[in-house]
Design a protein around this nucleic acid. Structure first.
Lengths: 347, 347
DNA sequence: CATGGGATAGAAAGCGCTTGCTGTACGGCT
DNA sequence: AGCCGTACAGCAAGCGCTTTCTATCCCATG
């Protein structure tokens, strides 16, 4: 039924070993022989059996990219960057790696399941993106898994996620804390004193870091934070909408709303407008990530740009180079983008 | 080094065959034995070797989802829907399928390469999403590949992409033509007579169908189309921005701009505004897809909603059910969403 | 002319798992 | 008591490829 190496070998009048060598090109084969083999491959329309090859060679060319939400452009952009960096099909680098993205949906179980699945497949590399869940037992489970993966020779890269101690995983983090701080400092500089904050899901490193940055800025400015000013939600538009309404209910005198990310900010804008408030005259709004659509919001969104597109590139080059994070490495810094949605508060 | 089935067998004092059967659960094993095996698996922290298993069983649980641009929410949402439908880890259905999404970046070569890669892996299924490239030789190559895949037992699903003749591939298409037509009819109904159209890349089925719908509406209304009114570009915001400027240059009297999709429409809005034009007072704008951010644009975008989230579900249920498209099956219809960006033309 | 060596090609031993077929034991049946 | 069906468990033969080791062949050397 299906064509095998042996069939090709027979047709080309050589041994299977030779065919394998031609295909892998890591052993001298006479030009004439090679040609004959290639011709046979072509005529027979032969396709290597991946599993068999992986089994025999004890390696595979699978690279898994884990994302929290594939429908979120934040991850889409990052995945895209990573993929082009590791040189998927058509990409630059040697050999064709099958870069695949796995959608965990933010679920700890799925994250673990995917890691196991990738471990099963003896993946060449695994990239975990986005914030990690801060549940002790889950963190431990993931760390254990990662350790096993690296032990088995799988390269592990953490992208926008805190380093995993006791692991040889390369980590490229984003400076969420610094970005959050800059953003809030900007708002404070404008004169805001009562700022609402729509945080992401609790127990997520990203959520926590951004919130910490925000609070650090408040504290530095001597502003006493009111617990009512913080609401937790999901990282999506709806959540931003609902949370804003809640915020407004709790304290109608807020003059600014800082959102966990741009999608949330968009939802916040909608809610504000529906409530009859103008942006930024009545309330300023700020997002995070600077996704492509943010500049087109009206008013355009003040936000923090993260170097998502550089996600694939490690500190000082490609993380695929093999080096591990060194003490001197800096986080991917955020860049404050001041736009129309933030302004001087009323009064 | 790594734990194998044999290790588990030894530890549980049974034969490898028994361990395999416990793990696959398709053969009677005494409860006590099963328990012993499971315990050993647990203690040894055994992980099945995917390639070996796939080789021996001649099947795998890989499901590949090909998308044109993973950074585009359009595909992200669709991929997400498909993934949850086929029951990836944590999903409903039996067994754990490793659903992976492969980013072709719209390149024909990459598309083919990924298909080969998936064929190599003996994927259980592959889903191709989004518009296809209308190059005869490429279409032929893809068809041949798909035929080979289905012959090898891989289920092939076409999602938002025209059916492939001579293939047992299941196809779920979106009614791009009808949607495009509705949209333009709406604009015409409002009184527009000079409509610019920003099309997607040429040679894409999606692009062509939407454009055809647009033209059908024009024709039905007896409007003679001016060739200057159509510009081709990419499916992204920047492209929309540039194309709009071009359109304005060609004919400043346009009263409406119809975009290939929502991202393009957003870019168009920006360009219009920069040119000092108000939306919709001076120029109406329409998008396509109804992505989440479209409702938050200001003014909110008039667009066509596609049942992306149903993408995973086939005609009358899941395409995984195995039935093939039947003549009576309808395309996924688009729903016109009239919002703020379209209005009565000036004059 | 004998010989060492470089360049190729082949033989064969797995890689770790699945599964058809072959035991073996036990309970119920006549 | 003898027989057979049922319920498990094990044997062993691959699945299709990679790779080490070995066998050739041919040419340059001494």
């Amino acid at each position: 039924m299906t064509v095998t190496l042996a069939d090709v070998a027979a047709r080309a009048q050589v041994s299977p070993a030779t065919v394998s060598r031609v295909l892998n090109g890591n052993y001298p084969v006479a030009a004439s022989t090679r040609e004959r083999v290639l011709k046979a491959v072509d005529e027979l329309d032969y396709v290597l059996n991946g599993p068999a090859s992986a089994l025999a060679a004890a390696t595979s060319d699978l690279v898994g990219i884990l994302v929290n939400d594939i429908a979120d452009p934040f991850f889409g952009i990052m995945a895209s960057a990573i993929q082009s960096e590791i040189g998927g099909p058509g990409g630059r680098a040697g050999g064709e790696r099958l870069a695949v993205v796995c959608n965990t949906g933010g679920s700890p179980e799925r994250e673990l399941t995917y890691l196991t699945l990738l471990q099963r497949q003896r993946a060449a590399a695994v990239v975990l993106t986005g914030g990690a869940i801060e549940d002790a037992s889950h963190v431990a489970a993931v760390s254990a898994k990662l350790r096993k993966l690296t032990d088995a020779g799988t390269r592990v890269v953490l992208c926008g996620r805190p380093p995993a101690p006791d692991t040889s995983a390369v980590a490229l983090t984003f400076d969420n804390r610094g970005g959050g701080r800059q953003l809030t400092e900007h708002l404070i500089g404008l004169g805001h004193r009562r700022l609402g904050y729509i945080a992401g899901p609790e127990e997520r490193t990203t959520t926590r870091h951004r919130l910490e940055g925000h609070r650090a800025a408040l504290e530095a400015a001597g502003i006493q934070e009111d617990p009512r000013w913080t609401v937790h939600g999901r990282y999506d538009r709806r959540s931003g909408h609902e949370a804003t309404l809640e915020l407004l209910r709790r304290d109608p005198s807020l003059t600014a709303v800082v959102a966990a990310n741009d999608s949330v900010a968009l939802g916040a804008c909608a809610a504000l407008r529906e409530s009859g408030l103008r942006i930024p005259e009545d309330v300023s709004v700020a997002g995070f990530d600077d996704l492509p659509f943010s500049i087109d919001a009206v008013p355009s969104l003040t936000t923090v740009r993260l170097p998502l597109a550089q996600a694939g590139r490690g500190p000082g080059g490609s993380p695929w180079g093999g080096r591990s994070r060194r003490p001197g490495d800096r986080d991917g810094a955020g860049e404050l983008m001041v736009r129309g949605s933030s302004g001087v508060p009323r009064e």
